[in-house]
Computed example of a mutant assay.
Amino acid sequence: MPEAPEKFNAAMTTWQEWQDAPWGRLRYAIAEANLARHLDDLGDGPLRILDLAGGDGGDAMRLAARGHHVTVVDHAPAMLAAATERASTAGLTELITCVRADVTALPADLAAGAFDVVLCHNLLQYVDDVPGILATALAPLKPGGLFSMMAINRHSAALSIAVRETDPAAALAALGTDRSRTQTFDSAVTLHTAERSSRSCKASAARTYGTTASAASATTSPTTRENTTRRSTRTLSNWNSPRPRCRPTCTQLGSSS
């Protein structure tokens, strides 16, 4: 079950300390560098970016500093208050909009927002219905847009325990499970592999854009939302289009927050 917003509110101080620590700084540096490799391909001018479960704006601040317009969606009031304060301090209030909402039930204006980029960087580990969340996340993406997904890396969990905790027995046990707990929020989480995340993204893109599962490489699709919603059984041959609908970029994190 998704965690209640109160749990994230209560851990604000710990969360901010983690962001300032080496693991936290590395996580945001990796995300920024990975996105920078793709954003230039989306054209000139500021982009409209939707940051789902964006928390206190760690990713949003970096993107707004590059001149992009970022909408941060989160269900924890304390996180959004911190994001608003950070934007004000950085002089980025005109570029950052904070919206309190459940990601599983986005407001209509966001769900149909035709964003250039959608971020899903701190969400998958907390939800049970990953395909459903991904379908919701993909829906606001405009033709040719970029979907960026990050997840805690299941393959690194055992290595982290072995190296950082020097506990071989616990590391061996970690190899056989996809469940863990975050230290910051003391929350149960599901760990993902790059292969599993990629398959889930492709399958969700197929359902969201009316493609067949076998065609869901998430690199091409029909060029209009009307076509994809009305024609839900397109074949591979009909699916080819010169304009990409969704180009996923997936980053696996090596430690849980």
Rank of each mutant, 00 (worst) to 15 (best):
D41A: 14
E6N: 06
A4R: 08
L110N: 09
N9V: 01
A11Q: 06
Q252S: 08
P140G: 10
S204Q: 02
T251D: 14
A76T: 02
T84M: 12
W23H: 00
G45T: 04
L106K: 06
T89Q: 14
T228C: 10
A137M: 07
L146Q: 07
G91H: 06
Y28E: 09
S257H: 13
V163Q: 10
T184H: 00
A64S: 04
H38E: 09
A81P: 00
T208N: 05
T233I: 03
H69P: 02
A171D: 02
V127A: 10
S255I: 10
L175E: 12
G132W: 08
R179H: 13
S204K: 02
L80D: 11
A218C: 10
Q16V: 01
S255L: 10
S156V: 04
D116S: 02
E6R: 04
A162D: 05
Q252F: 03
T233L: 08
T13I: 02
P248F: 11
S180F: 13
L26G: 01
A137R: 05
R86W: 07
A162G: 04
I30R: 05
C246T: 14
A90I: 05
G210H: 08
A173D: 12
T224V: 13
G58A: 09
H69K: 12
L146W: 07
A213R: 09
A112S: 12
R181I: 12
T93R: 11
S204F: 07
L47N: 01
S198C: 11
A78S: 09
K142A: 15
G132T: 07
A203E: 07
A205Q: 03
A64M: 08
A139I: 05
R230A: 15
I96K: 06
P222D: 10
P222N: 11
A139D: 15
S255N: 08
S237P: 02
R25M: 07
R207A: 15
D41V: 00
D44F: 00
T71G: 07
R48F: 00
R245C: 03
A170H: 05
G58R: 02
A114G: 03
A11F: 03
A10S: 11
I30Q: 04
G55L: 06
L146D: 13
D51W: 15
G43C: 02
C98D: 07
T251P: 00
R100E: 15
A206S: 10
A60G: 06
A81H: 04
S221Y: 05
R247L: 14
K142G: 14
G91W: 04
A4S: 13
A82I: 01
R86S: 14
S156G: 03
D129Y: 03
A65Y: 00
A82R: 13
A4M: 04
M79L: 01
S256C: 12
D56S: 11
T251Y: 06
I30T: 03
L95Y: 11
I30M: 03
S197K: 00
M150R: 12
M1W: 07
L26N: 05
T212P: 09
N227P: 08
R86M: 09
M1R: 13
D102A: 04
G113E: 06
S204H: 05
T249E: 14
G67K: 07
K7E: 09
W15K: 01
T97S: 15
G91Q: 08
L47M: 03
L80Y: 02
E195Y: 05
A215L: 06
V70I: 14
P5K: 00
R199N: 04
R230C: 10
R225N: 13
H69S: 12
F185G: 11
R154Y: 01
